[in-house]
Design a protein around this nucleic acid. Structure first.
Length: 230
DNA sequence: GCGACAG
DNA sequence: ATCTTGTCGC
């Protein structure tokens, strides 16, 4: 897919600049909407190799509603920044964008590992990516960054709101029985309700929705093959 | 000042 | 995130 990459080549910034940028960008996030004419959904997964020196971005493009993988991209590049809670997007987005640029197809919805607006400054990696792509995005987190919530029901589909400073910023969702719940939050151009609905739509027999699960699976499979092959 | 802290 | 084998349980 074609994207505008103006600042991408020197995106490394210091902590204060990153935080200022988040404060500046967050107000532009659109927390409502119902993505339409969905034909393809993309899953984004970021991993690290060489003790963190290399960043690996995996993109999986999947057809809806068959959930069949139609395209995949694995991109590697030098890691730019260290991990700092709250500044994840500055560390992982460059690689994700370069990987997306290599994607031939274009998704109408994107799912990302991590938070959408369920972030201290309401600009988690999924929200930041959505703003950049101007596409609907959903944050699919495996653990909590901020906010509090009541215990979640045990049955699949059980949910409870994630609240921070009096504001509902996401949904804690049980995607499978006897497994830790996921933290779903709006990224951009989609309502919380719709975000949860799409995650549910993409669930099969696993904890993660297919887009991110397939991206994860592809990442570990290739990494393993590479290791065993040398 | 003391914890908490996506991936 | 990543390092790592087997093992207990639905």
């Amino acid at each position: 897919m074609s994207i505008s990459f103006k600042e991408l080549h020197d995106w490394t910034v210091d902590t204060e600049t990153a935080i200022a940028l988040q404060h500046q960008l967050a107000p532009n996030i659109i927390r409502e909407g119902e993505p339409e004419d969905i034909e393809h959904i993309a899953g984004v997964d970021i991993g690290f190799e060489d003790e963190g020196a290399t960043t690996r971005a995996v993109i999986v493009l999947m057809h809806w509603p068959s959930l069949e993988v139609v395209e995949q991209v694995i991109h590697r590049e030098a890691t730019r920044m260290a991990y700092v809670p709250g500044l994840l997007s500055f560390r992982e987005l460059p690689a994700a964008l370069n990987a997306l640029q290599r994607l031939e197809g274009t998704p109408q919805l994107v799912m990302v590992d991590g938070m959408g607006i369920a972030h201290p400054r309401r600009l988690g990696i999924a929200a930041h990516l959505g703003l950049w792509l101007e596409l609907p995005t959903i944050g699919v987190g495996k653990s909590r960054l901020c906010g509090r919530h009541e215990p979640v029901g045990e049955e699949k589909g059980a949910r409870t709101p994630l609240v921070d400073r009096g504001e509902t910023i996401g949904t804690v969702l049980r995607t499978r029985e006897r497994v830790k719940p996921l933290y779903i939050s709006t990224g951009h151009r989609i309502s919380e309700e719709s975000a949860v609905k799409w995650v549910m739509h993409c669930l099969t027999r696993y904890k993660l929705p297919e887009p991110t699960r397939q991206a994860d699976r592809l990442a570990s499979r290739r990494t393993r093959a590479l290791r065993e092959g040398r």
